[in-house]
Simulated assay, not measured.
Amino acid sequence: MSPKTFLVSLAAVASLLIGGSQAAAQAPSQQPGAQAAAPSAIAPAEPASSSYVLGRDDVVEVGLLGRSDFGGRARVQADGTIQLPFIGKIPAADKTTAELSETVRTALRTGGFFSDPVVVVEVVGYASRYVTVLGAVNSPGLIPLNRPFRLSEILARVGGVRDTAADHLIVRSEDGRERKFVIRELATGDAEQDPYVSAGDKIYAPAAETFYIYGQVNSPGVYPIQSGMTVRMALVRGAGLTPSGSDKKVEATRNGKKVKLSLSDLVEPGDVLFVGERLF
């Protein structure tokens, strides 16, 4: 091999080595077996109140104030206990966070692990105390009860009712008892008309029942019935009488029969109201 050919070959080898080193430097480093960080535990929208009662599958975080050598997250098991370092199983179900703190504190002191620990318990996942909201609401679903909620607050949590909803809610308790609440009175009534909900309650917003009005009204059509709706209110809902309409000539087709109505009569679901002409 001539000196010139040798130099050309040496330069080519050097170029390959330099290029390979640069590619290796630019390639992202990744350790074998490395995994993405695990997602964080379910976090509540807001802290639990001091009156929140723990139940099965709730998740709590237990720690000691000013110390990092004890604690962690634990789920309330089917038997109502949680498992913690040093002290093992501790009853947690049907306790508030304050009561659980005292239980853990007593166990740590009795076991001789800490002389005077300050135990902190925080609920980080809710699973045991819910209400179910169904029907003509904007966001039906399960709402966790991390504190005492009034019915109006639950309704706000689901975005209120739809335009097609009735003007009332039906609340069914776990014992089968049903109660009816007028939505307007949730805001304007007293505490009895806007009660606290209980875990296991089912809240249902029914679709509004309707009536049909036609004849000498400005806006004939199908409209929802409100509680206590009278013929006078139905005429207003239909945008009032035309110039030739008469409020003394209102009749309903009800259950296949014609019924003459006065302004104070109540409108019933499925009524077909006809407004006649007045005499000149």
Rank of each mutant, 00 (worst) to 15 (best):
K257D: 11
G200D: 04
Y204N: 04
G189V: 08
G19R: 10
F113M: 02
E185W: 03
E99P: 07
Q35N: 07
F6K: 03
S50D: 15
V171F: 04
A199H: 05
V161F: 10
G238V: 11
S101M: 07
Y204Q: 04
S244K: 13
V182K: 05
A45S: 14
S227T: 15
A14F: 08
S246N: 13
P195I: 13
V197T: 02
L17V: 15
G221P: 03
G125R: 08
D94G: 09
A48Y: 03
A36I: 11
G88M: 11
G19E: 11
I203V: 06
S152M: 04
P148V: 11
G125N: 04
A98V: 06
P206W: 07
R129Y: 01
E46W: 10
N218M: 08
R184H: 14
R179A: 13
L134V: 07
R162N: 09
V171E: 01
V131E: 01
L151F: 05
V236S: 12
T242R: 04
E178G: 10
V171W: 00
S219N: 11
D194Y: 12
P44N: 10
G125Y: 06
G72R: 09
S40N: 12
T188P: 00
K4Y: 00
A127H: 14
V120Q: 07
L169P: 05
A207K: 09
L186K: 03
P91M: 06
G55E: 08
V250C: 03
A208H: 02
A207W: 10
Y130I: 04
Y130E: 12
F149Q: 03
T230E: 03
E251D: 07
L17K: 05
V267K: 02
E277A: 09
Q226D: 14
A23F: 14
E122F: 03
L169E: 01
S115M: 12
V182W: 05
P117A: 00
L100P: 11
R278T: 06
A12V: 15
T110D: 15
G112R: 08
D94M: 13
E99W: 06
S15F: 11
N255D: 15
L186E: 00
Y126R: 00
M233S: 08
P243I: 02
F70C: 08
L54G: 07
S227E: 15
S246L: 07
N255Y: 09
Q35C: 03
E277N: 14
Q83D: 14
R150L: 00
P206H: 04
S49V: 09
G111M: 13
E268P: 04
A78K: 13
R56N: 14
P44Y: 03
I183G: 04
D163I: 13
A136H: 11
Y196W: 13
P117F: 01
L145I: 04
Q83M: 14
S9R: 08
F211L: 03
R147E: 12
V158W: 07
R67Y: 13
E277Y: 10
G33A: 01
V120R: 07
F114D: 02
V120M: 12
L151Q: 02
